[in-house]
Computed example of a mutant assay.
Amino acid sequence: MPTPRRFFVADAAPPPETARYAHAVEVGDTLYVTGQLPIDPDNPQALLPPSIEAQTELVFRNLLRILDAAGYRLEDTAFARIYLSHFERDYAGLNAVYHRHFNDERLPARTTVGVAVLGRNALVEIDLVVARG
């Protein structure tokens, strides 16, 4: 029998713009959160903030809204995948914000990669795997 799945589209998170997808999919006690860009869910057409720090904070705000809608907590993150469009320039700024959200006692596993371009010409995108318990 297949594992039951629940799909979440959080009203408070940025709406899918050009592609159709769920903000998160739960399989068992694991939640897979779609990569989030620094889009203001209250004003999705607004220009993106200019700095990596401001963009990363907005990404975390979106991730937290999705986790809350699905009944999970950021502290339960098992894995984070981070994409940076200007890796060398923005890595330190990303980490300054990242470590405000994840303390040293509960750091998830992580991959950070440089990419050629992100949607909306964003500087950062982050997706998560979150597990209960």
Rank of each mutant, 00 (worst) to 15 (best):
V25F: 02
V130S: 08
A22Y: 03
D42N: 15
F8M: 04
R61E: 03
A69W: 02
D11H: 06
R89D: 12
R132Y: 07
V97Y: 01
G71R: 02
L48N: 01
P50H: 12
L63S: 01
I82G: 13
L64D: 15
D90R: 06
T18K: 11
P41R: 10
G71C: 06
A46P: 05
G114D: 07
R110N: 13
Y83W: 11
L47M: 07
R100F: 04
P108I: 10
Q55L: 02
T18M: 06
P4W: 06
T77Q: 01
P14G: 08
A46F: 05
G133Q: 05
H23M: 13
L107K: 09
P108G: 13
D104P: 02
E26L: 04
R110D: 11
G71Y: 02
Y98V: 07
Y21D: 07
S51I: 00
D40C: 10
A116E: 14
S51H: 00
A70G: 11
V97T: 05
L123C: 01
L94N: 06
Y32E: 12
A116L: 12
L118M: 12
D90S: 06
T77N: 01
R20F: 09
A13R: 03
F79C: 03
L31T: 13
L107W: 04
T3G: 04
R5F: 04
G28Q: 14
P14M: 09
A92I: 02
G93N: 08
V113N: 13
